[in-house]
């Protein structure tokens, strides 16, 4: 049982491209789901009743349906419905955003709700508008509490991008599959992929733990 890791060196550029795509997809879908999640959260907190019900249904549905299913549906079924074709990357971006925004929305909601009552009352007494209160009083405080949860969500985002390989997005996972298939050295290639993902994820989860430890001191028993 001998391992030959030169296969990694030989396909370095191909695999590096995969890393770049993984990072790009993670960052972009992270941002889009953050923005979308905030909008969804605000709709849930302050929207009219009908809108709120739809939003709750959407959020709970994303808790029930696996990412894989969302991605596959977006890539294969959505074009049939809309008549538009889209690249795997775009489909992955849309699918990931739709799925992750639901979780982001819940984090925003929990963070905002944890600040609401007394602070809002004090700000109202000063004569501030609801929008001002949200922007200047509630959100800044909520951000601190939400940081650990968002860190976790970032970690989940990076891991979910690997699933995009199933719809042929040329990310690290997909590139690894290709090289592994062609070279008949799956162990070396997949071990390398594991190393790369670990290097991407470990700082994020470590950072989350460290922030969480610092946050936990503020006001918890």
């Amino acid at each position: 049982m001998d391992f030959d890791f030169t296969v990694i060196a030989d396909n370095w550029r191909f695999l590096a491209y995969g890393v770049r795509i993984s990072v790009l997809l993670s960052v972009v879908s992270g941002l889009t789901s953050l923005v979308t999640g905030l909008i969804v959260a605000l709709l849930r907190l302050y929207g009219p009743r009908g809108v709120r019900m739809v939003v709750v249904l959407y959020i709970d549905s994303m808790r029930a349906i696996p990412v894989l299913v969302v991605l596959v549906w977006t890539f294969f079924a959505l074009p049939i419905v809309t008549g538009m074709t889209m690249s795997p990357f775009m489909a992955a971006l849309i699918g990931l955003t739709v799925h992750l925004a639901a979780y982001a929305a819940e984090i925003f909601r929990a963070g905002i709700e944890s600040v609401r009552a007394g602070q809002t009352r004090a700000a109202l007494a000063l004569g501030m508008s609801r929008a001002q209160i949200l922007r200047r009083i509630v959100l800044p405080q909520a951000v601190v509490r939400m940081l650990p949860a968002f860190g976790s969500l970032l970690s989940v985002t990076i891991k979910d991008t690997a699933i995009a390989s199933v719809i042929a997005v040329p990310d690290l996972m997909r590139q690894s599959e290709t090289v592994a298939g062609q070279s008949f050295q799956p162990i070396e290639v997949y071990t390398f992929a594991m190393l790369m993902y670990f290097v991407m994820l470990f700082p994020v989860t470590r950072g989350v733990d460290r922030i969480y430890r610092r946050i936990a001191h503020l006001g918890r028993s």
Partner: peptide, 8 residues
Amino acid sequence: RNLPLILV
């Protein structure tokens, strides 16, 4: 905790 499940 730091590996995608699909890769595992």
